[in-house]
């Protein structure tokens, strides 16, 4: 029994790694935000970096609150569970420091929104990528 468990362990690890290996952060192709580091993505999604180099207000978009991709994205970025991130955003919101990342309306995807705005930024599953947006960071990229 133990042999089977040990044998399947690498496969399980591969699957768990694959679950969030293909999350990509996307922006408008003409956006000032290019080749972001992990730290810059953290700063944007944790409300610390709100203004881009050219003075525009960066507007981050989030995936649905209870979605797996959101939990995986924040765990990978911050090494904190999503419950901790939710409490963190409540602190920022109710101290008037920043508004949490927006949720897209039902009729629009994050790609639709980012494709229309120079200052929007979002994260998506790589399989949903199309040529209307540019990738500036991969969740597995440890730069």
């Amino acid at each position: 029994m133990m042999r089977y468990l040990i044998a399947t362990l690498p496969i399980l690890l591969l699957i768990s790694a694959q679950a969030w290996a293909d999350i990509v952060v996307v922006v408008h192709p003409q956006s000032e935000l290019k080749n972001l580091t992990k730290q810059q993505v953290i700063d944007i999604y944790m409300g610390r970096l709100q203004i881009s180099a050219d003075g525009g207000k960066i507007v981050p978009y989030d995936q649905p609150q209870d979605s797996e991709i959101r939990a995986a994205f924040y765990q990978n970025l911050t090494e904190k569970p999503v419950a901790s991130v939710n409490a963190y955003w409540a602190r920022l919101l109710f101290t008037g420091r920043a508004s949490p990342p927006r949720q897209p309306s039902d009729s629009m995807s994050i790609v639709d929104i980012v494709a229309e705005s120079l200052y929007a930024i979002g994260y998506i599953d790589e399989k949903d990528l199309d040529d209307r947006v540019s990738v500036v960071f991969k969740a597995m990229n440890n730069e």
Partner: peptide, 8 residues
């Protein structure tokens, strides 16, 4: 002010 900021 930037012209192409997202509407919200």
């Amino acid at each position: 002010t930037k012209a192409q900021e997202p509407k919200g």
